[in-house]
């Protein structure tokens, strides 16, 4: 198992990846086709086209209010419940539309997991939090519960801290530990895509580094899409970066290129800190 404590900087950067991977054998996990989305009369996103590559980390950056969260939530249809929500265009997961009339929301969310900006453990014990999705999706029998809890907590590096209080309240944990618990909860149902919405914005630097290393260790087994306002974080962990501005995708490129040689002037202004 990958050590969670491994410094984030040791993670392979795009430039270090072997040429054969460069050649693009990984394929597309999610495909966004001419997506427009809004609430009532407000149009929040428009004209979005994007390929999320399988087994990579895609970072979404952009000023506050540029639509990153809304876009991320359209990938697992979390906007559906928002009042007056509408959308045009489509999102495919492995080639199949997630918005098709017969698409099963529960099945979609089992395959596309999500971790929110603020940790949101359920008001149940630490172990029960990990098992919530496992039970609902009947992923394993009762006899495996203990092992699942331990394995998932080890995976996120939380086991040593909580192994003697699995039945305690998750709210007795620090914010960073709660976020790791939410990550473990999301991983426990075995998603193929993981959506992270500024997962470290309320966390201290050490936990942030842990979570970044975690994210790195999840690929290429998983596909990760992460919203971050921390440009350094995007540079450190992502393979590709997408720059959002005013509800539009301005630029999408390999991370190194987007930061060092952006095509669009707006991107250049943003990544050099001259905007927002």
């Amino acid at each position: 198992m990958t050590s969670v404590r491994a410094p984030a900087t040791a993670a392979p950067r795009r430039a270090d990846v072997p040429a054969i991977v460069e050649a693009g054998i990984r394929g597309v996990s999610m495909q966004v086709q001419d997506l427009a989305l809004g609430f009532g009369s407000a149009t929040v996103l428009s004209g979005l086209d994007l390929e999320v590559r399988r087994g990579e980390i895609t970072a979404l950056i952009g000023p506050t209010g540029s639509g990153k969260t809304t876009f991320l939530r359209s990938l697992n249809r979390m906007n559906d419940k928002v009042a007056k929500h509408w959308h045009r265009g489509d999102v495919l997961l492995n080639g199949a539309s997630i918005y098709a009339p017969g698409a099963q929301l529960m099945a979609l969310r089992r395959r596309v997991g999500m971790v929110f900006q603020r940790p949101n453990p359920f008001p149940m014990s630490i172990a029960a939090n990990i098992l919530a999705g496992v039970k609902a999706h009947r992923i394993a029998g009762k006899e495996h519960y203990r092992d699942i809890v331990e394995a998932r907590l080890r995976e996120v590096g939380l086991w040593d801290a909580v192994s003697n209080r699995l039945n305690s309240s998750p709210f007795s944990l620090s914010g960073g530990q709660q976020q790791l618990l939410c990550l473990a909860r999301a991983l426990a149902i075995g998603p193929e895509v993981l959506l992270l919405d500024e997962p470290t914005s309320s966390l201290d630097p050490v936990t942030t580094e842990n979570i970044e290393a975690m994210a790195r260790s999840l690929v290429p087994a998983l596909t990760v899409v992460i919203v971050t306002h921390n440009l350094g974080q995007a540079r450190r962990i992502s393979d590709r970066t997408v720059f959002f501005y005013q509800g539009k995708m301005v630029e999408c490129a390999e991370t190194a290129q987007l930061f060092e040689d952006p095509r669009e002037p707006e991107t250049a202004r943003y990544v050099t800190g001259r905007m927002g």
Binding site: M78, M106, F122, I189
Partner: peptide, 18 residues
Amino acid sequence: VPTAYREGADALGLPELT
């Protein structure tokens, strides 16, 4: 009840009754 609980449950694909 905080929206965050509901959203967390939705994001995990928990059935409504659960």
